[in-house]
Design a binder for these strands. Structure first.
Length: 286
DNA sequence: AAACCTGTCAACCGCAAACCC
DNA sequence: AGGGTTTGCGGTTGACAGGTT
């Protein structure tokens, strides 16, 4: 037997709410509250609406603390940051934005912010040749990784640095563009994590620092079955986490691809249909 | 001026979790 | 404990407005 419908669809009004209905609902909730039962509310309030519809109308539109109107840049930033970290959990994101509803945030993302995101992806695609770093011994590539499994390519403007804590020379030849590939699933065949140097827990301002710090800011990873180290994850955070939209710093992790991976072509990686190896990126939590 | 296209956003739908008896 | 009910959530739809051809 199927699930009982929440209301008799034949006898409820649907579609846009009239000002009269809004007034009725607002007055009823103002006087009696929701009574903890949205299903019964429309009947009590004298509305020919489904309880779900009443709830939605109240939560998304009639609530007195709802903030209408455009989103501020600060709100943009919060949404982008949270989306990067937790994905499309709109109610959680909305809870960080007083007066905003999950529906608002979702619509705003889908109509505005997602496009900026896509534009960034296009930018990346058009500039793959720029993504190239070098070490003292061999060219390396830099992959920027996110904790929810998507990966980013990134080039960082600025200075040369060395990684004295791990003994791995790291001299960057940086590009001024920051390029992102999210949500491209970036396959590195056979890659597995080898947590040799601890967990990533901090971020550092590389724009004003000549070297990476000497604490547990790196972990190594292995690309072969013998567990030999092929590279290092590094947290090179230099600010907040939405620079792909607004052009400033980011608290992200970077993956230095060691010489054995240096001949990887980014375009072929992107074209690859291989699935991302499990357990590599997910371990990279903030 | 009309047809078509695009962007926006309110509202709906279905599912799963939470709750209640 | 288990089944039914309600709530909350995220994805999707569709009406409408404004812009473009």
């Amino acid at each position: 037997m199927g699930r009982a419908p929440c209301c008799d669809k034949a006898n409820v009004k649907r579609g846009p709410w009239s000002p009269e209905e809004d007034t009725t609902l607002r007055n009823y909730v103002g006087k009696h509250g929701t009574g903890g039962n949205w299903i019964a509310l429309p009947h009590k309030a004298g509305l020919k609406r489904c309880g779900k519809s009443c709830r939605l109308r109240w939560l998304n539109y009639l609530r007195p603390d709802i903030k209408h109107g455009g989103f501020t840049e600060e709100e943009d930033n919060i949404i982008c940051t949270l989306y990067q970290n937790i994905g499309s959990r709109w109610s959680v994101i909305a809870s960080h934005l007083p007066g905003r509803t999950d529906n608002d945030v979702k619509n705003y993302w889908n109509t505005k912010l997602k496009k900026k995101h896509s534009a960034a992806i296009s930018n990346f695609t058009a500039n793959t040749n720029h993504i190239q770093l070098s070490t003292s011994t061999s060219p390396v590539s830099v992959i920027k990784s996110e904790n929810h499994g998507n990966c980013f390519l990134n080039s960082v403007s600025g200075s040369s640095t060395s990684l004295s804590s791990t003994g791995v020379g790291f001299e960057s030849k940086m590009d001024s563009l920051r390029l992102y590939s999210d949500p491209i699933q970036f396959p590195l065949p056979g890659l597995k994590e080898t947590p040799e140097f601890g967990v990533i827990s901090n971020s550092y301002d590389v724009s004003s620092s000549s070297s990476f710090p000497t604490d547990n800011s790196c972990i190594s990873w292995s690309g072969n079955a013998n567990g030999e180290v092929d590279g290092f994850f590094m947290d090179v955070g230099y600010g907040s986490a939405y620079d792909h939209l607004h052009g400033y710093g980011s608290q992200e992790k970077m993956l230095e691809v060691a010489p054995s991976f240096a001949n990887f072509s980014f375009s072929s990686l992107l074209a690859s249909t291989e699935s991302k190896p499990q357990g590599v990126y997910q371990s990279m939590t903030y």
